[in-house]
Each structure stands twice: as structure tokens, then as C-alpha cells.
Write a protein that binds this DNA or RNA. Structure first.
Lengths: 116, 116
DNA sequence: CGCTCTCATCTAGCCAAACTAGATAAGTAG
DNA sequence: CTACTTATCTAGTTTGGCTAGATGAGAGCG
């Protein structure tokens, strides 16, 4: 986060939520999660491997996801992660909190002097 | 940010933007900014003094806001901050970036397997 | 065969920013 | 005098994304 934030910089604290959401759709390996987030966001997020993999390890450490090594379609080894029950609950909470907070921020950003 | 995030925890990186927006409406002192953010957000943000004042000092250090000591209506000394031209430009950029990113996040959170 | 490309993961060390948990000071109200 | 509110400040911790690499293995090519 040095100097001017590029538009691709993640809003801090959202990467966990986005990973959980991606895995809620289907189990995937880390690299694939990065590619998918980039695709769905239409390039807004270029998910950094140096952010992504540490995030995955934190999520696994906290038992929100669980992973096992397998072989991909391309015949490479990769660790496939899936949501745990705790992860699913966490995603639900985080999504709800995110919506509450973005609504509140929108209210502030839309405010004008008249309505205070 | 210990343990379970309370719903009042700020989405990281947004405090600067919210302060700039508040000051864009009218010059205020720090304490007042905190009260106003809490009011407009309808209690979603209980802005921590330990977050708020360091943030103000960073913004002043970066010349995005400028402050001078005055006396409030209550006859207390307080530092009134106002936006600088740079601050106004920064607010514009941050608001635009915020909207791009929240739209992208919304797209991800709304995604279902069918549309991949 | 060696070379390069892509896929896939991992790590160390940095840095911004919000947090906790206080201290400080001065005016107001009882 | 005491307690409360307003108003600001700080030290030290933690979170989490960042840069900038290393590592390894399969695929394609001359």
C-alpha cells in the first residue's frame, strides 16, 4: 500500500469475504480463485499471489476453509479448498456487515449540507 | 481489530474518505466529525477517537486538510479543519475508486454458479 | 535434449491504518 | 469540590495487503 493507491488495490478486509464467496460456489484451488476474481470483477481486482496465498492460509488456520492436494485438469498439483460450515456462517455474517457498512458509507457520501 | 469484528468496525481505508467528505460540507473539528459520522451513519460507525485523531494528523501531514485552533460554541478550544484543494481532488478520486470497487464486489457477491 | 512458458504455491519483510487503552486539559453543573 | 462532558493526543499492538522474490513441475518447441 505504498504511495498512491492504484484502482486495483483491494479495499482492505474484503479479500477474505471474496475468497469465501468464490468457494461457496464451488471448491477451487488458490490460483483458480485469483483468476476467477479477476474475471468476475472485470479486471478491477488483479489478485496478487502474495496477498492471496497468505489469505488462504489464514482462512485455513481459522478453519473457515479446508483444503486437500489434488491434480488439476492440466496435470498439475494444486490444493483444492472448500468452505467449512464455519466458513459458510462467516461469509453470511461478513456479507451482511458489508452491506450495512456500504449503505452507511453511501449515505455519508450522498449527504449534502441541507440534510444535516 | 481483535477477534470477531463488531459491525461498527470500519471498512479499512474508508475513514480518510469519510473525513474528507464530511469536511467538504463544512469545516469542523475532529470531535465534531466523529459525532456527525455517527449521526449520518445512524450509529453504524462509532468512530474511535484513537482512530480519528491519528487519521486527521495523517491527512494534515499530507496537506489534504488544514486546521487552525479556535474556540467552539461551548467555549472550548478545538482544531477546526477544512479541505485543501488537494484534499478536494483526493476525495473525488477516492469516491470514484470506491464506487468502482464496491460495484465489482457486489458483482462477485451476487454471482451464482450459473453465470460463470 | 535443453530452453522457455505457464501453472501453482510459498515466504520474508514492509507498511498503512485501525485498534486498545490509556493520559491530559479545560469548561460546566451539581 | 467533584463529576461530567467536550476535545485532543499518544504508545504500542494487530491485521492484512503489498513488493519481490524463490521454488517446482508439466508442456511445447527447435
Amino acid at each position: 500500500m505504498a504511495g498512491e493507491p492504484k484502482p486495483s488495490d483491494l479495499v482492505q478486509g474484503t479479500l477474505h469475504m471474496l475468497i469465501l464467496k468464490t468457494l461457496a460456489l464451488e471448491p477451487m484451488h488458490g490460483y483458480g480463485i485469483g483468476v476467477r476474481l479477476e474475471q468476475i470483477s472485470k479486471g478491477v481486482f488483479q489478485v496478487n499471489a502474495g496477498s492471496l496465498f497468505p489469505a488462504l492460509r489464514r482462512l485455513e488456520r481459522d478453519a473457515l476453509i479446508a483444503g486437500d492436494w489434488r491434480v488439476t485438469e492440466n496435470n498439475r498439483r494444486a490444493k483444492y479448498y472448500r468452505l467449512t460450515a464455519q466458513g459458510r456462517a462467516k461469509l453470511k455474517r461478513e456479507t451482511r456487515d458489508w452491506e450495512v457498512q456500504t449503505r452507511a458509507i453511501a449515505r455519508i457520501l450522498d449527504a449534502s449540507l441541507g440534510e444535516i
